[in-house]
């Protein structure tokens, strides 16, 4: 099989993304989680620029720059500030049994590859083989949101899911139109701000960011 050099780099990036998704799924420390998220943004930006270089899609350069600035710098920075202010930097989270979560994640990856197989056969892009990984990282991030009990890791899961979606878009169709991408970037930023405000509200209401307390809000 003869894959061009750029293709090999993209495949490596994809593998790294999948690895990071699993790492995030099993990470207990909130600070490490944010660092992993920043790393994910960095790899995403790198792989997007390689795709832009190899397919001569200039608008992908802008996407890559946007990803780099927003997801590898601004969002992690906001998150860092948040956890410092909330004083939960060193929090260790109790969570669902990690090996079981990993096993479920493996199942999801198999499902995602199975799902992506017919689509990537139709796609004519250089990155088509990575579509399965993109889907898998979306699903893994979702799984992470489900298994976490505190608010900040859930938001990180949400942002990581958006990363996965972005990667899926680049690998299937060389990215979305610029307007859509800008819109999504803005959405993510705004969501981050709103959720940051919510963190403080939740903490003043329940004295903790543990979401189990919100079960009291249920109407009987």
């Amino acid at each position: 099989m003869n894959i061009p050099f750029s293709g090999q780099i993209i495949n490596m990036c994809a593998a790294l993304l999948l690895l990071i998704a699993f790492a995030m799924l099993s990470q207990r420390r909130i600070l490490s989680l944010i660092n992993l998220f920043a790393l994910q943004g960095l790899i995403l930006a790198a792989s997007t620029s390689v795709v832009a270089y190899s397919s001569h899609q200039t608008h992908l350069y802008y996407s890559a720059a946007l990803t780099l600035v927003l997801k590898a710098m601004i969002l992690p920075w906001i998150l860092h500030r948040l956890i410092r202010k909330l004083n939960i930097k060193w929090d260790v989270e109790t969570m669902f049994n990690i090996p079981t979560t990993m096993l479920a994640g493996l199942g999801l990856v198999v499902f995602a590859f199975n799902l992506a197989a017919p689509v990537s056969q139709m796609a004519g892009t250089i990155t088509r083989s990575t579509l399965g990984i993109a889907m898998a990282s979306v699903l893994l991030s979702f799984l992470m949101m489900i298994t976490r009990s505190k608010a900040v890791p859930q938001v990180v899961g949400f942002l990581a899911m958006e990363n996965g979606l972005f990667f899926a878009a680049t690998s299937a169709t060389y990215g979305m139109p610029m307007v859509v991408e800008l819109g999504i970037a803005l959405d993510v930023l705004v969501a981050m701000f709103i959720l940051g405000i919510f963190f403080f509200q939740i903490r003043t209401a329940f004295d903790s960011l543990d979401l189990h307390h919100m079960e009291k809000l249920k109407e009987d």
Partner: peptide
């Protein structure tokens, strides 16, 4: 269906997503 646990709600949407993905395949 209403538990008040955000994880269960997320699980609902996750399972829905999986089912829909399996359906459109």
């Amino acid at each position: 269906l209403q538990h008040g646990r955000i994880h269960i709600y997320l699980l609902y949407s996750f399972l829905t997503l999986l089912a829909l993905l399996a359906f459109v395949r």
